[in-house]
């Protein structure tokens, strides 16, 4: 009985492990987004494939906010008139710093680290979150 149970247990464990992918073929978490000059001042630039907003401010420099709603993962939109982020799925609203204003989102929007590479390009790393006050001066 014990032998049977352990055999079944081991097999089940192996099946579950088999189903966990060993390699993820998703898009890379860290990538270049172009030259600083590509980005205008004023309203943020939305990069659809990466799902990020790139902010450029004359005094304070670059910052990158995630466009993925912290509630259930829909893509938020930026509205210029109230400068808030609105989620189309369940109505979460985030302030310009990413804080939750209302709706079901449990956490503020993520901000990602943005750095300058040696060849003068901007690089975003989605594995490194930073406080909303983080800025890259160029």
């Amino acid at each position: 009985m014990a032998a049977l149970c352990s055999a079944v247990g081991v097999s089940l464990g192996a099946v579950v492990r088999f189903l966990v992918p060993s390699v993820f073929y998703g898009p890379p978490q860290s990538f270049k987004i172009g030259n600083p000059g590509d980005f205008p001042y004023g309203p943020p630039t939305f990069l659809a494939d990466e799902k990020i907003f790139v902010f450029r401010d004359r005094e304070r420099g670059f910052a990158v906010a995630s466009a993925v709603c912290t509630h259930l993962g829909c893509t938020v939109a930026y509205f210029q008139n109230d400068r808030d982020f609105h989620c189309p799925c369940h109505g979460s609203v985030f302030s310009p710093t990413g804080a939750v204003l209302h709706g079901p989102a449990p956490r503020p929007l993520n901000w990602f680290e943005i750095t300058l590479t040696r060849d003068g390009q901007l690089r975003v790393d989605k594995d490194k979150t930073v406080p909303p006050t983080y800025r890259l001066m160029v």
Partner: peptide, 21 residues
């Protein structure tokens, strides 16, 4: 990249989605 607005689940899950909201 683009979430349709509103993004709705199939109707029989909309009660659930309402709770989730």
């Amino acid at each position: 990249a683009v979430t349709p607005n509103p993004a709705k689940a199939p109707w029989y899950f909309l009660g659930l989605q309402e709770l989730v909201s």
